[in-house]
Amino acid sequence: MLVKTRGIVLNYIKFRETSIITKVYTEQLGVQSYIINSVRKKTPGSRIALFQPFMLLDMVVYTSHKGGLTRISEYKSAHPFSSIPFDIRKSSILLFLSEMVSRTIKEEEENPQLFHFLYNAIIEFDEQQEHFENFHLVFLLHLSHHLGFGPSNGAEIIEQVAFSANAQSNTGAPPVLALQAYEVYFHQLLRTPGQTTIPNGKVRREMLSILIRYYQLHVERLGEIKSLAVLSEVLS
């Protein structure tokens, strides 16, 4: 059966000489994986760029009651980006966020609220010309609410991460004292993200590290985020 749906590309892996297997979060079917043939050919008009992280697609896809890999009948860009491909900071942020989404969203069923949050956030990010340095932090905070473990305030994040760190420590020292300095910034990002001023990149990187740890406490087998090193280097 054919289904028309919008999709958000999460990632792809190479398959055979010129094909790929791509993971897409679809509006109608949740997370799906598709085989795309001959998309990596080095010829004019190659469409591999459409399967970069967080590209937005309009698609007509095949479905199967058996699940597993299927194919895309038709696909095209749903929203050509105006800034993301030309800004290394933005593309690095999206690479990181797409990996986080890919590791945290597993369900093969529709979730309109989650899909619309992701879709609209990506468009908003593309349209931002400046002051987007906190976007990935705000995005992860909002995503956590859609995933069911969103914090109500900054203290909740710090306490959970600090308690976890203390449980793993042999010294028994209260890490909450070292982390408390970031509590107010998390609280501001939750309440008034557009008015939050984080003093420098070092604080921002520490906050991201804390937020990833917070996700690890709630998402089973989240694992290492490979794109984090690239993001940290680009935003340093």
Rank of each mutant, 00 (worst) to 15 (best):
R71C: 00
M207E: 09
G67F: 03
Q129I: 14
R89P: 01
E17I: 00
H142F: 01
L95P: 01
L211R: 06
Y185A: 04
P44K: 11
V24L: 02
V31N: 07
Y25K: 02
S152T: 05
Q160H: 13
Q32E: 12
T5S: 13
P112F: 01
A162Q: 07
F163R: 10
Y34N: 01
K202Y: 09
V24E: 01
S98E: 06
R221L: 13
A162L: 13
L69N: 05
V101E: 07
V3Q: 12
Y182M: 11
L56A: 12
R89D: 01
F139W: 07
H116M: 15
V9R: 01
I157T: 00
G201H: 05
S232N: 14
L179F: 15
K23S: 14
F139E: 02
F149P: 10
Q52M: 10
I158M: 03
K90A: 05
F96P: 03
N200K: 04
S164Q: 15
F163A: 10
E109P: 06
T22K: 01
I158Y: 03
L141M: 05
V9C: 07
T22E: 00
S33L: 08
S92N: 05
I105S: 07
F51M: 00
G154H: 06
M55H: 02
K90N: 12
F15W: 10
L118T: 11
G154F: 04
T5L: 10
S144D: 11
V203G: 04
K76N: 15
V138E: 09
S82Q: 15
E27M: 12
G67A: 06
A181R: 13
F135D: 08
S91R: 03
L177S: 08
Q180M: 13
L190R: 02
R221Q: 14
D126L: 13
Y119N: 14
Q52L: 12
F115L: 13
G30N: 10
R16F: 01
